[in-house]
């Protein structure tokens, strides 16, 4: 459906956009260089033949052990033309910054805060760059693959409860 959108994008930004292997969902995927993501998104939204007026989901992936380690994924949708496109942006661990797309879609605000909270990717230019889910006292980014699964950071001191069938308590937490 959005083959045309991917083709138009490749024609417009030949140096910054490359084709990615197609995923199981049927949406077209393209890789975008992270320095140009804001310009690419602006073009996708404002071009009259594409009109991607929504970013229904922006998220990140941690490919631990690969290089570059992180990837930010932008799922785009055009409600007037009913087509979709998925942009993938590779983010190396040495430089965890991606330009914000909040200026293009206002709704990307919380998604970018989510990516910062869960993966530690920062978005320079974001209007309200805070954690989304976790509290400010929380150290680290819990959805990274190297964050311990039970890495709880309680805000108050916990009462000591007997360990019957409950698993490790406050002392022996990993």
């Amino acid at each position: 459906m959005s083959q045309a959108a991917a083709e138009a994008l490749l024609a417009k930004f030949p140096d910054d956009v490359s084709r990615a292997p197609q995923g199981p969902g049927g949406d077209d995927l393209v890789f975008v260089k992270k320095e140009r993501i804001a310009e690419v998104c602006r073009f996708l939204k404002e071009d009259p033949a594409l009109r991607f007026n929504m970013a229904p989901y922006v998220t990140a992936v941690d490919y631990l052990g690969q290089e570059p380690r992180f990837e930010v994924v932008y799922n785009l949708y055009s409600s007037s033309l009913n087509h979709r496109l998925r942009l993938r942006v590779k983010v190396p661990e040495s430089d965890l910054t991606v330009p914000t797309v909040c200026g293009v879609w206002r709704g990307a605000d919380w998604f970018e805060r989510y990516c910062y909270d869960m993966y530690g990717i920062t978005f320079p230019g974001h209007p309200d760059h805070r954690r989304l889910f976790m509290y400010d006292e929380f150290v680290g980014h819990p959805l990274r693959k190297d964050y311990p699964l039970r890495g709880r950071q309680p805000l108050t001191s916990e009462r000591d409860v007997p360990e019957l069938l409950r698993g490790p308590g406050p002392e022996s937490r990993d």
Binding site: F133, R152, P154, R159
Partner: peptide, 15 residues
């Protein structure tokens, strides 16, 4: 929910 976010039973907080 044995994960990073959830209190493992409210008896850790109140009797």
């Amino acid at each position: 929910y044995d994960n990073y976010a959830t209190v493992q039973g409210i008896d850790r907080l109140v009797p």
